[in-house]
Write a protein that binds this DNA or RNA. Structure first.
Length: 419
RNA sequence: CGGGCCGUCGUAUACCGGUAGUACGUCUGCUUUGGGAGCAGAAUGACCGAGUUCGAUUCUCGGCGGCCCGACCA
């Protein structure tokens, strides 16, 4: 795997949070050099941030592929004609379009979701029951002209979304896939370290199903209020929290109210888009039928913010191993001494050979700054190399969440990293 | 979009109707080196526009921008 020298990294950490950010996620991500704020609700991802994003996206891809999802990448620019078909072009109907003009004349939109173009596209590829079911997904930039951006990277005007769409021949086939997708979603949230705090939440379902399912992670930074059932770990969104719904779900009255952020949402579209855009297939008898659809979204950038919000401590970010930008932060104390520096590079290379990504802090900086930055950046394992550790013939390792460091042999460190 | 607060180096602030100072941070050099060190030096700022005025960073108006509450969140 790779070794990145911190002296080579172009980003720098900041001691102080910028004044115009109050959200914890943005403050820490900016201080650590993961993101740069371009303007309200618009953030750039820097090298460390990209590494985290790639980890998250990797997990999402594995889970989507596991349920048969096929990855695509649709355009962000949208043709108004497609959207007029479903009456979703008009600003009166959809109030958060970013629209722009074509020099050659005419309008374009920047996609805030992709049901229309993908349904249109699939008309070229679905025509028989033999072509079903299918699931197609992408991880792509979405644009939403929010009246008010807020909460750091949790609610931006430009953000990444993994959106998957399923195409089934009927409701039963759809529901079978829907359940698999639901499990895949749980897997994603568990794997990125949010399993304990993320609840399947019943929310309003739109026109074609009673409920949609949201995945809500409990955090004070959230915008939603949910009611978590003490009986069986599911929750109800405040927007549909009525006696009738409680009864429908067979739940009593024992709930905990919590603020939460919607990190995922899956819902049944039924034939809304296939009817409007003419996506049909012929069944075994030759009868023409509309394709039955579902939609499944996760916001990778919002997930980054949520992980920071829920797991950070007073010293900085705490990344779960699965999404950390590096596996180990190798901090050299006394890096100006040639023998220490050489030894550190050797250890870094050895760790790399063992399959770990290493961030090597070889900067000529003070100990306090280096250790403080290590806490801020939040890599799960910190290993210190100094004259002291060399004299011991060992390494000094400390998990980000541990209180104290301990001396370990190289093999013991490798073991700890693997566990 | 309704409401509120607010725009002075990166951050926090000071002063002032006469073109801006301090601290921390940043940069350079030297010394230092186990939880943000010392010395010396340096760079960096009045959001934009109009008006009032001899003169505006300061006063007035208008834009633009930021944050927060609400609404919205396919």
């Amino acid at each position: 795997m790779t070794v990145t020298k911190q002296s080579h990294l172009f980003t720098k950490t900041r001691r102080e949070a910028p004044a115009d950010e109050t959200a914890k996620n943005a403050q820490l991500l900016i201080r650590g050099g993961f993101v740069h704020k371009e303007m309200a609700g618009v953030y750039d991802l820097l090298p460390l941030g990209v590494r985290v994003l790639n980890k998250i996206n990797g997990i999402i891809r594995e889970e989507m592929n596991a349920v048969g999802g096929q990855e695509v990448h649709l355009s962000a620019l949208q043709n108004p004609e497609t959207w007029k078909t479903t009456n979703r072009w008009d600003d009166e109907v959809v109030d958060n379009w970013f629209k722009t003009e074509l020099k050659a004349g005419g309008m374009l939109g920047l996609g805030f979701t992709h049901e229309e173009p993908l349904t249109e596209l699939m008309k070229n590829h679905i025509s028989s029951y033999r072509d079903l079911p299918r699931a197609v997904y992408q991880i792509q930039t979405k644009f939403r002209n929010e009246l008010r951006a807020k909460s750091g990277i949790m609610r931006g005007r430009e953000f990444l979304m993994k959106d998957m769409y399923s195409f089934s021949s009927n409701e039963a086939e759809h529901l079978a896939f829907y359940e698999k997708a639901k499990e895949a979603y749980f897997n994603v949230f568990r794997r990125v370290g949010l399993g304990e705090t993320t609840y399947l939440t019943f929310a309003s379902g739109g026109s074609f199903s009673k409920f949609s399912h949201e995945f809500q992670t409990v955090t004070e930074a959230g915008e939603d209020t949910i009611y978590i059932s003490k009986e069986n770990k599911i929750a109800i969104n405040k927007e549909v929290f009525t006696d009738e719904v409680k009864k429908d779900l067979g739940l009593g009255d024992d709930f905990i109210e919590a603020k939460a952020v919607e990190v995922g949402n899956i819902f049944t579209l039924a034939t809304k888009f296939s009817d409007a855009l003419g996506l049909t297939y012929k069944d075994e008898t030759g009868e023409v039928k509309p394709v039955f659809m579902g939609s499944y979204g996760i916001g990778p950038t919002r997930l980054i913010g949520t992980i920071v919000e829920t797991l950070a401590d007073d010293k900085g970010i705490v990344w779960p191993k699965s999404v950390a930008p590096y596996d180990v932060h190798l901090v050299v104390i006394g890096s100006e001494k040639p023998d220490v520096a050489t030894h550190a590079e050797k250890i870094a290379a050895d760790l790399s050979v063992q399959g770990f990504d290493v961030l090597l802090d070889d900067r000529d900086a003070r100990t306090g700054e280096k250790l403080g930055d290590a806490d801020l950046i939040g890599i799960p394992m910190r290993v210190v190399i100094s004259e002291k550790t060399m004299a011991e013939g060992k390494l000094e390792a400390k998990a980000r969440t541990a209180d104290a460091a301990s001396f370990m042999t190289f093999d013991e460190v490798v073991e700890a990293l693997k566990s």
